[in-house]
């Protein structure tokens, strides 16, 4: 039996909205540690790793490990039927072929349940080694989303270059070119607005903007985003979910021929 109750049910809707454009079908792994997902997009260029710890839920019970294969798009459609302030409970039997989502309105006057059929999904899991990255940038998530969107008007790829002076996002295209440089700055009163650059050595890598724009769909989940890069390694774009876990996206770099 798997049962998980989340007072802030809207959190799961935001998570689904940040994954469904990248991956169609995926397995949610339920265990005593929590609720997790690892999935690659169909072209194997990007990977999502999402983890919600069991202690972040208001109630969490998972008697045995369970893998729930779902269409992320269909799950997102169901979660759209949840009120913004509803409490969400997910339930699944150990050998069952469906998962139930129960939505309770804050005043308990409306209770609904939606059942989603599960699917058998063969998913390829990759081992992601712990890495000390050459550079890590923490910045406002909305600022990162804006830069990716703005640069997409000019080009298809972005060169992200971290130096001690800041992080520079550059693109070129048929109509011209664009650069945005963000400098580190602290803000004691508004920590969500600060930019922190932790650099062991300068690093510059090129990525497809299309994927970064998909990652930015996670912006409503966190005020800050953490971008970690090392030479010739996939970038990690991580959004921390307060008191619960994170959603991290990995994107393979473009390789110069």
């Amino acid at each position: 039996m798997f049962e998980a109750r989340l007072t802030q049910g809207v959190l799961l809707r935001k998570l689904l909205d940040s994954m469904k454009d990248l991956v169609q079908d995926a397995n949610f792994d339920c265990s005593s540690t929590g609720f997790a997902l690892q999935a690659m997009d169909s072209s194997h260029v990007s990977l999502i790793h999402m983890q919600l710890r069991s202690d972040g839920f208001d109630h969490f019970r998972c008697d045995r490990n369970l893998s729930m294969g779902v269409s992320l798009n269909n799950m997102a459609k169901i979660l759209k039927c949840m009120g913004n302030d509803d409490v969400l409970t997910m339930k699944a039997e150990d050998q069952g072929d469906s998962v139930t989502f129960m939505f309770e309105s804050a005043n308990q006057e409306r209770i609904s349940d939606f059942e989603l059929k599960l699917m058998d999904i063969d998913s390829e899991q990759l081992g992601i080694p712990d890495t000390d990255y050459s550079a890590t940038v923490k910045m406002p998530s909305a600022e990162f989303a804006r830069i990716c969107k703005d640069l997409s008007t000019i080009g298809d790829t972005v060169l992200i270059a971290v130096t001690k002076d800041g992080v520079r996002f550059s693109t070129t295209g048929d109509i011209g070119s664009a650069n945005v440089t963000v400098r580190s700055h602290s803000n004691v009163d508004k920590p969500e607005e600060q930019v922190v650059i932790d650099m062991q050595e300068p690093v510059a890598l090129t990525f497809a903007l299309r994927y970064l724009n998909s990652f930015a769909k996670a912006t409503p989940l966190s005020n800050q985003v953490m971008i970690s890069m090392s030479k010739e390694l996939p970038v990690v774009v991580q959004y921390r979910i307060e008191d619960m876990g994170h959603i991290s996206y990995y994107l393979a770099p473009k390789i110069e021929d």
């Binding site: 690659m40 072209s43 194997h44 260029v45 990007s46 990977l47 390829e124 899991q125 990759l126 081992g127 992601i128 080694p129 790829t157 090129t206 497809a208 390694l233 996939p234 990995y250 393979a252 770099p253 473009k254 390789i255 110069e256 021929d257």
Partner: peptide, 14 residues
Amino acid sequence: KSTQGRLESFFGPV
């Protein structure tokens, strides 16, 4: 010219 890398080139199977 650049080509898009694939994740399997960087990460191995579990």
